[in-house]
Design a protein around this nucleic acid. Structure first.
Lengths: 192, 192
DNA sequence: CGTTCAACTGAACAAGTGCTCAACTCGGTT
DNA sequence: AACCGAGTTGAGCACTTGTTCAGTTGAACG
C-alpha cells in the first residue's frame, strides 16, 4: 500500500478507536490491532502516538465543523443558530462530545493537542459569531457584541455538554437544548 | 499515629499531589513518597486508589464551596453573585479549575468520581439558584426561572474555564470575568 | 537475473502503574 | 514475660504503555 494511503488509513482508524475507547484510553496497540498491522508500521508514519493522536483529533474536529457549516449554509441566521443548537445536543451517545471534552482536558498536558483545540475553538467561535452578525444584518440592528455573545454560546455548549456527560447528572439533552435556545433568545433580545 | 488521623493525613496529601500533578497524572507512589510512608499503608486505609482519589476530590470540592458560601454570607444577592463570578475567575494558576475539569473528565470512566461530581455540581447549582431567588425577593420580582438561569451560569463557568485553560487560547481571566458579568446582567434583566 | 529500497514485521525493552503479602515494630493487655 | 494486633514496610507481581530495531518482504528497475 502506498505511503499516503496508509497514512490516511491509520488516521481514520485512530479516529474510530478514539471515538470508541476515549482519547485517554486509546493506545497505539488498539490502532495497529484494528488495522491488522505491526506496531512498527505506526511509528514508521508517525514519530509518536502524540502526533498521530493530534492529527486524528484535528481531522475529527475539522469534519465536525464542516458538517455543521454545510447544515447552516444558506439558511436564515436565526434558524441556522437553532439548527446548530439542535445538532450540538442531538449527538447520539455523545461520542463526539466525549472526544471534544477529552481533548480539551488532555490539551493541558499535550502541546500538540493544545494547538489543535485552540484552532478548533476559534473555528467554532468564528462560525457562531458570523451567524450572529448575519442575524443583526437581517434584522437591520447593530451587532456590536457578536463576539462576546459567541464566546458565551460556545462556552455554554461546552459546559452543558460536560455536565450532561457525567453519569447520574440531572442534565438531559432535552434540558440542555432548552437552555441553549433560551440563551439564544437572551442574546438576541439584547442585540435587537 | 492513630488510624483516623492517618486517614485524614493521607487524604490531605492526596489533594496536594492532585492539585500539583493533575488528577490523571497523580499516582499512589506520589502520595506515599510525599508522606514518607510505605506503599502498603495507603492500601491499608483505602481499598484502591480510585477510592482515595474520589475522597480527595470530594473533600477539595466541599472546601471550595464552603469557602464561597462564607464569602457571600449575608451579602446582598447582586453583590454576592458578582463576588462569586470574581472568585471563580481569580483562582491564581487555575489550580482548582484544573482539578475540577480533570475530575469532570475522569468521571466518565470512574463511577465513584461521577457520584462526587454530580453532588458537587448540584451544590453549586443550589448555591447560584438560591442567590438568584434571593435577588428576585430583594427586588420584589418573580423568580420563575432561577433554576434555568443557575444551570446556564454554572455551565458557562465550566465552559469558560475549560477554554481559558487551553494553552494559547485567546480567553483570558479578564475576558471571562466580563463575559460572566454580562451573563449575570442578561439573566437579571429578564428576571426583573 | 541481481540490486535497491520503501513498506512492513513483531519480539523485546524500559518505564510506569495499582496492588499484594510475608514480615516487622512496638505499645498495651493479660 | 508472653502475647496480641493495629500500624507499617517495601520488594515484588502482573499488567499496560510507547518506542525501538534487526530483520523480512516484494515490487520496480537496470
Amino acid at each position: 500500500m502506498s505511503g499516503e494511503d496508509r497514512r490516511k488509513q491509520i488516521v481514520d482508524k485512530a479516529i474510530d478507536v478514539i471515538l470508541q475507547k476515549g482519547l485517554a484510553q486509546a493506545a497505539t496497540r488498539d490502532v495497529t490491532r484494528a488495522l491488522g498491522v505491526g506496531s512498527g508500521l505506526l511509528h514508521h508514519y508517525f514519530p509518536s502516538w502524540a502526533e498521530l493522536r493530534a492529527d486524528a483529533v484535528r481531522l475529527a474536529a475539522t469534519r465536525e465543523i464542516e458538517e455543521v457549516k454545510a447544515l447552516v449554509d444558506g439558511v436564515p441566521a436565526m434558524e441556522a443558530l437553532e439548527r446548530v443548537a439542535d445538532w450540538v445536543v442531538d449527538d447520539e451517545d455523545m461520542r463526539h462530545w466525549r472526544l471534544w471534552l477529552n481533548a480539551l482536558d488532555e490539551a493541558h498536558r499535550d502541546d500538540l493537542l493544545a494547538d489543535v483545540m485552540t484552532a478548533a475553538m476559534l473555528d467554532w467561535h468564528r462560525l457562531i459569531a458570523g451567524l450572529l452578525v448575519k442575524l443583526g444584518e437581517e434584522r437591520g440592528a447593530t451587532t456590536s457584541n457578536a463576539d462576546d455573545a459567541a464566546w458565551r454560546l460556545t462556552a455554554l455548549m461546552d459546559g452543558l455538554a460536560s455536565t450532561m456527560l457525567v453519569k447520574g447528572s440531572a442534565m438531559t439533552a432535552r434540558t440542555a437544548r432548552m437552555l441553549l435556545k433560551q440563551q439564544l433568545r437572551l442574546e438576541c433580545g439584547q442585540q435587537a
